[in-house]
Amino acid sequence: MTTDRTGHVGTRGMPRPEREAQILDAALAEFGERGYHQVSVAAIARRAAISKPLVHAYFGTKDALYVRCVEALTETLLGVITPVVEGAEPGMPMALETLQTIFTTMRERPTDWMVLYDENLPRDSSVHQVAAAGRDRMTDLGAVGVRAALRHHAGAAEVDEVDASMMNHVWQSVVTSLMTWWIEHPDQTPAELTARFERILVAMTDVHPSGPPRRHPPQPLR
């Protein structure tokens, strides 16, 4: 091991922060692509092109490394989504900008999303607790956008709390569904994904960005 000019210990001349980032990136890729249960420290070491003992020296256990991955991913996502929720026009504009922001942030490796949303993490474990806490933070931020959309739509200060709960539940599911679809269709760009979702939403709701929903007269029973 060596020491860089700042005093940070690294290996083979690589500063410690760079080595940690290298290991975390390899771990995110492995966990995202294969899931927590299918990944070993040895596999992460191979992907990072370093030794297994070195991974343990930097991060300790597999669980500790997974926790660091979840924490880093959560902070990254919240860091880019929060400004959108705070500044975009409520409703469809905010939804579309949020999605494009997520897609753009994850464009190099969409599978990273699954590290936070792995449904098979062992219950009552540190990895499950930290991932659940990260998802809760994402859900709480989504609730802010949902409530803003409902207030904007109704033109009122108060919202129906049950409506808000249902809408946020649907929104969280939609985002993860879009991410899993993207993983299966990696040729799609962030702009294309966002445009496709907008077209689908318009088709399903008959809501047009440039105006209110079209009203169709009821058809007589035959």
Rank of each mutant, 00 (worst) to 15 (best):
M1D: 04
M1T: 06
T3W: 09
R5N: 06
V9L: 15
V9N: 12
V9S: 14
G10D: 02
G10N: 05
G13H: 07
G13L: 09
P15A: 04
P17F: 12
E18H: 11
E20M: 12
A21R: 14
I23L: 09
D25P: 05
E30A: 14
F31D: 01
G32F: 08
G32V: 11
E33S: 08
E33P: 00
G35H: 03
Y36M: 03
Q38S: 14
V39C: 12
V41P: 00
V41T: 07
I44K: 05
R46T: 07
R46C: 02
R47P: 06
A48H: 02
A49W: 13
A49L: 13
L54R: 06
L54D: 06
L54P: 01
V55T: 08
Y58C: 10
F59E: 03
F59C: 05
T61G: 11
D63M: 05
D63Y: 04
V67W: 01
R68I: 00
R68C: 05
C69I: 08
C69L: 12
V70W: 14
A72Q: 12
T74F: 00
T74H: 02
T76Q: 15
V80I: 15
V80N: 15
V80T: 15
T82P: 04
V84S: 01
V85W: 00
E86R: 10
G87A: 08
P90I: 14
M92P: 03
M92I: 14
A95H: 07
Q100W: 09
T101Y: 10
I102S: 04
I102A: 09
F103Q: 06
T104M: 08
T105P: 01
E108A: 15
E108F: 09
R109F: 13
R109Y: 09
W113C: 03
M114G: 02
L116K: 03
Y117M: 14
D118T: 10
R123V: 13
S125T: 14
V127S: 03
V127K: 01
V130D: 02
V130R: 05
A131Q: 02
A132S: 09
A133F: 05
A133S: 13
M138N: 01
T139K: 11
T139W: 12
D140T: 07
L141T: 02
V146Q: 01
R147P: 05
A148I: 00
L150Y: 02
H152I: 00
H153S: 13
A154H: 12
A154Y: 03
G155S: 13
A157C: 08
E158S: 13
E158F: 07
V159D: 07
E161K: 03
V162Y: 12
A164L: 12
S165P: 04
H169D: 14
W171F: 15
S173Y: 10
S173L: 15
S173E: 14
S173Q: 15
V174S: 07
V175G: 07
W181G: 04
W182I: 01
W182E: 06
H185G: 04
T189R: 11
A191P: 07
A191Q: 15
L193K: 01
A195G: 02
R196L: 05
E198Y: 04
E198V: 00
R199Y: 05
I200P: 00
I200Y: 06
A203I: 08
D206A: 14
H208I: 12
S210Y: 14
P212M: 08
P212H: 13
P217L: 15
Q219K: 08
P220V: 05
L221P: 03
